[in-house]
């Protein structure tokens, strides 16, 4: 499998009144063709910002991509002008995004037709009626009924789940190579979540696209992702295949995360163990391991030394830890 997108040492910092927030601090990952990859972590660990950085959609100021490269189709797309034609061609055309909040991610004043067709008008070489037909077809595909009529409705006439289906249709509309789904089901109820994830994974394989799912829900990850990146405080602290991570988690944080998830395959009435403490304040952080204060396996090295780089273990499994 060839690598489609490669992120190297990405650093996105926010320059606030209280100090520098290193939301993404040296993150590297990649995605292959037709692959589903998950980026996992708690709220505020920089997983969303790292994805927005790829698209150059971080609001500047206060945010700024201070270092790193994003290789896509043989070039570093972070070097492109954020508002320029080339970057616009990638956004929505080659890489598209689905956002967390279906209720607010659609423009309330424009019809679904308008919002679904505008990306196609920019990226596809089709005429008006072809675009219209494709829009209808896409809505059928994501499971919206009575599409001929409903395409002229406004967002407020749809439920949250329906709106997220429309977002999926929009993301797929220009045959992108990669779809980045930023917590696509977090705002929805559980049954809707399952339907939508099933739909997404089906359509992604049908369109031969790759999918990056950003989530804090490990259940989603276990079911759909081939590879996983676990993030903590702006860095990737462990990565590997789903089997490696779930089978033999190495980093104390990853193990802590898995201990918080209820499992059906354990017999005893084992109690769920929450991770002690809370995520650190990202303003003006110290350069050592950010998990140090919460870690049960910490050693003297962890306090003294810089945050360790990802170390190879077996297969695709990497971990960033002094103690393991």
């Amino acid at each position: 499998m060839t690598t489609l997108l490669k992120v190297n040492n990405l650093k996105t910092h926010f320059f606030t009144h209280t100090g520098v927030v290193k939301a993404v601090d040296g993150v590297s990952f990649h995605i292959d063709e037709s692959e589903i990859v998950a980026v996992v972590g708690e709220s505020g660990c920089g997983k969303s910002v790292s994805q927005l950085s790829i698209m150059q959609l971080v609001s500047t100021p206060p945010g700024k991509i201070v270092d790193g490269t994003v290789e896509f189709e043989g070039r570093d797309i972070l070097r492109l002008d954020p508002k320029g034609k080339e970057m616009r061609g990638i956004r929505g055309g080659k890489i598209s995004m689905i956002f967390q909040e279906p209720m607010t991610s659609l423009n309330p004043l424009l019809t679904i037709h308008r919002q679904l067709t505008e990306a196609m008008e920019v990226h596809l070489d089709l005429d008006r009626s072809q675009i219209h037909d494709r829009a209808i077809e896409l809505l059928d595909m994501v499971g919206i009924s009575d599409t001929d009529k409903r395409i002229h409705d406004y967002p407020h006439q749809f439920s949250g789940g329906m709106r997220q289906r429309i977002m999926i249709a929009m993301a797929l509309s220009c045959n992108p190579r990669i779809i980045i789904a930023d917590e696509p089901t977090t705002a929805l109820d559980v049954t809707t979540q399952a339907q939508l994830l099933e739909l997404m994974s089906d359509l992604v394989s049908k369109f031969k696209a790759s999918l990056i799912i950003v989530t804090h829900n490990l259940g989603i990850v276990a079911r759909y992702a081939r590879r996983i990146y676990v993030m903590y405080a702006g860095r990737v602290i462990e990565s590997g295949t789903a089997k490696e991570i779930f089978g033999s988690p190495k980093h104390p944080y990853t193990r802590g995360l898995l201990n918080c998830v209820p499992r059906l395959d354990t017999k005893d009435e084992t109690r769920l163990v929450p991770i002690a403490g809370s995520i650190p304040n990202l303003v003006n952080m110290k350069p050592n391991c950010a998990f140090y204060s919460r870690c049960q396996h910490r050693v003297e090295e962890c306090k003294r030394e810089y945050w360790p780089v990802l170390r190879h273990i077996t297969g695709l499994h990497h971990v960033s830890c002094h103690a393991c």
Partner: peptide
Amino acid sequence: QQDYIRTAWAKGLAERTIVFRHVLRN
């Protein structure tokens, strides 16, 4: 700052289209 404006940017629309179609109208 609204989410739907970020969606419009993510579609790859030109700034002018975003300003006049999405921002100004709202």
